[in-house]
Amino acid sequence: MSQPIIEAKNISMCFNMTSEKIDSFKEYVIKTIKRQVSYDQFWALDDVSFEVYKGQSLGLIGLNGSGKSTMLKIIAGVLKPTKGTVTVRGNVAPLIELGAGFDMDLTARENVFLNGALLGHTREEMEAAFPDIIQFSELGNFMEVPIKNYSSGMVARLGFSVATIDQPDILIVDEALSVGDFRFQEKCQARIHKMLDNGTTVLFVSHSIAQVQSICQRIVWLDHGHVKRYGDAQEICEEYKQFK
């Protein structure tokens, strides 16, 4: 088999939680002299390893605070792990939070181009994809409205439409489908399935086991930063349901 498209090796992520946040230089100097800068170490991830091959879909499940989002952020390149390495072979479209790249003061149309550029698309590509975005998000009448006047469902629809215009090698979806009505959720799932069929690798985080079961083939079950189970989706999902 070829090389894995995502290879996470012994990832550990440690956050230094200062008892209070030190923002100013004065505080820093005083506290350093007094040796009061105390760090509480918090290991959000501890020695997590897994591999994903091209075209596979991997689900990350676990309770709140188990390190799922931290893991996704490391793969997306937003965070650097304290220990271990992640090798990602391909371009990543992160849906860590829908509408993350939106500027509330700009109109939807301007945001589409800004967000497209964030994902590495040129202006021409975005112009070509624009009708598709309008059609998928069903927001044709609201393109000249500043995003700050949008409802959260509308922002999510626009965000999903922009992030999935082309065929990224890796799509990261973090709870993104939990907003929006059921009809839109179904539409999104259909689109994700289509991308999977076309060879996109999907990393999926959701608290809805039904969604995870429908989309993912393999699962990493995180529990307090440790890998509790790693393997076939159906089996682990059943176990996870029991665990609950």
Partner: peptide, 16 residues
């Protein structure tokens, strides 16, 4: 790769 983004960001600063 991120040149289009630079253009969009600069445009945004001016627009806003």
């Amino acid at each position: 790769k991120f040149k289009p983004l630079l253009i969009e960001l600069t445009g945004r600063d001016i627009k806003i």
